[in-house]
């Protein structure tokens, strides 16, 4: 059975869009305004999986990725993320290095208070067409895409909140397919149940609400009916940290959708990351 390239690409694009690196206790499935300290390096080893079904398709993806961020100043960081993906689509399998993402973030506003911090940042990413886009299912999209957005938030000893908006411009990729541009809106709340000391393990729990909308895809100049629309996710996230080490994980559950036509919808997405600050 032939894989549905649209559904496969949808999973891949969502996975990359979800790969928003964060500093400190930022959200997992959406961008955060944090930047790493000047001269600091953050290395992330992560695992991501996603499953979509419907419209006669069944797709599953597993992805391992390595990311690194470097603080040029306390407000400005640059980074890279290299994924390796395994994809299953309607009985077909493929694996390989995925699309590499380069990113930069600038924290343009910060207000520090005793035990609390407000901040806001702008960020840009470029997804390069480095993944194999010739096989089935496709590991890479074959397109160079640009992602930009704004994130703001508040962090205190007890409470957290974040709000962000992201716009993704997709270009024509493999097989003449141009994915529709995507928009993301995110609202996040979090709490630290127990206030620990600096040299003790620390736990924070968060709940994200992630809204995603995609425009219709375009194949060789013609719009595709069964593409585009929106999905809404509820995403519990847990952070565990000890000094410069962090482990965080979460699951995105779809709670509503308004996808166009007959297409695969998300069943779930899960992600776990191991983060180390040098």
């Amino acid at each position: 059975m032939k894989a549905n390239p649209i559904a496969v690409l949808l999973v891949g694009l969502l996975a990359v869009a979800a790969a928003m690196p964060a500093r400190a206790h930022g959200p997992l499935f959406s961008p955060a305004p944090e930047t790493i300290f000047k001269g600091g390096t953050e290395v992330t080893l992560g695992f991501h999986t996603a499953k979509t079904t419907g419209g006669g398709d069944r797709e599953k993806e597993y992805e391992v990725f390595v990311g690194a961020e470097y603080g040029l100043t306390a407000d400005w960081e640059i980074g890279i993320e290299v994924p390796y993906a395994w994809k299953k689509s309607n009985g077909l399998d493929a694996n390989g290095v995925g699309d590499i993402v380069l990113d930069t973030k600038y924290q343009f506003w910060r207000r520090d208070l005793p035990g609390a911090q407000y901040k806001a940042a702008v960020f840009f990413k470029t997804k390069l067409p480095t993944g194999d886009d010739g096989g089935q299912p496709r590991i890479g999209s074959g397109s160079t895409d640009v992602i930009g957005g704004l994130a703001t938030g508040y962090e205190s000893r007890r409470w957290y909140w974040f709000v962000s908006g992201v716009y993704r411009v997709n270009t024509e990729g493999a097989g003449g397919l141009e994915k529709g541009d995507r928009q993301f809106l995110n609202v996040v709340g979090g709490v630290r149940p127990v206030l620990t000391e600096y040299d003790e393990p620390d736990t924070v729990v968060m709940l994200e609400v992630n809204w995603e909308r995609a425009g219709r895809d375009d194949l060789n100049g013609a719009g595709l009916a069964d593409t585009g629309g929106w999905e809404l996710f509820l995403s519990p996230v847990v952070w565990w940290t000890y000094r410069q080490v962090a482990i965080r994980g979460g699951v995105q559950f779809p709670i509503a959708e308004g996808l166009n036509g007959n297409q695969a919808t998300s069943d779930y997405r899960a992600r776990i990351e191991f983060i180390y600050h040098f």
């Binding site: 206790h25 944090e34 300290f37 001269g39 208070l113 035990g115 620390d202 940290t241 000094r243 600050h277």
Partner: peptide, 18 residues
């Protein structure tokens, strides 16, 4: 030093490093 904005241990590692 009184450090304003110091809210979490993971973020505070930056100040230890610096």
């Amino acid at each position: 030093l009184r450090v304003d904005g110091l809210a979490c241990p993971f973020c505070a590692y930056g100040i230890e490093k610096e």
